[in-house]
């Protein structure tokens, strides 16, 4: 079943096209990674899908309905967790936040926040302030806040680009676990080829700006993935090579971000 449809999307930035003629669809329950050279318009594409920027042309449909503003059943996770969490709210109040203007009672709010925090492996830090946590823990809080509304679609913009490698592996596994447990549809932007293959059920490869789709590769890896085993497997290495080749524009080796 198709959840998200993007058709002939174009977005101009300062008079020049950042994204052009993008067409793809994402099925319910899929985890799709978008990768491309740096500065190619990946983030712009994600913001257009979220309804945060209005596309110059083309359309985005969620459940078949055109997206004009941010839809209610969509959550967004930013790269910059440090500034995306509100420093004056405790961890629990940050996670509860999106429920405060939805008709959810106080008790249920607390319950769902606790559940979301437990889901991302955070317990006992409810009353801390975000700055008292490590970067990886802060991004977990941001993910919990995104999941607390039980969104149909989760958009993530380079969510693990600002944490150290070890934490990054943990968060990648966490994301796959949470995504499968909740059957959430995820569209994730990353500049890291390995990450796109490791995380995705599908990898969309974008060209240099103006970004258009150069490949839509299914990831034929087992659903259960392992940081060491999966990354060492022949299938993974082959896919990674394929993504890298598609990223490299003909005659321009510098295009690989």
């Amino acid at each position: 079943m198709t959840l998200l449809q993007v058709r002939h999307l174009r977005h101009d930035y300062r008079g020049a096209a950042a994204v052009d003629e993008l067409t793809f669809a994402v099925g319910a329950g899929e985890l799709v990674c978008i990768t491309g050279p740096s500065g190619c318009g990946k983030s712009t594409l994600l913001r257009a899908v979220a309804g945060l920027v209005e596309p110059t042309a083309g359309e985005v449909r969620l459940h078949g309905d055109p997206v004009r503003a941010v839809p209610d059943e969509l959550s967004f996770v930013f790269q910059d967790y440090g500034r995306s969490l509100f420093p004056w709210l405790s961890v629990r109040r940050n996670v509860e936040l999106p429920l405060r203007w939805r008709s959810v009672g106080r008790a249920e709010r607390a319950e769902r926040a606790a559940e979301a925090l437990a889901g991302v492996g955070l317990a006992g830090v409810d009353d801390r302030y975000p700055w008292q946590l490590s970067g990886g823990m802060q991004q977990r809080v941001a993910i919990a806040r995104a999941l607390v509304t039980r969104p149909a679609l989760l958009l993530m913009d380079e969510p693990f680009a600002s944490v150290d490698a070890q934490t990054r592996f943990e968060l990648e596994d966490l994301l796959r676990r949470v995504q499968r447990a909740r059957a959430t549809t995820v569209l994730l932007v990353t500049h890291d080829i390995d990450e796109s293959v490791y995380l995705g059920d599908r990898v969309l490869v974008l060209s240099r700006s103006p970004a258009h789709l150069v490949a839509d590769l299914p990831v034929d890896l087992p659903a259960e993935r392992d940081q060491i085993g999966t990354r060492g497997s022949a299938a993974f290495v082959a896919l990674r090579g394929e993504v890298a080749r598609r990223l490299r524009a003909p005659g321009d080796p510098a295009a690989v971000g």
């Binding site: 503003a69 930013f78 500034r83 509100f86 709210l89």
Partner: peptide, 29 residues
Amino acid sequence: LDPVQAETVRALRMPPGHRLVLVVLPAAL
């Protein structure tokens, strides 16, 4: 207001009243 916070507010679809009390005023405090 920090630009990332402002975009977060939009991504969360925070209504104006909540935005004022939960974000704008605390940030200005």
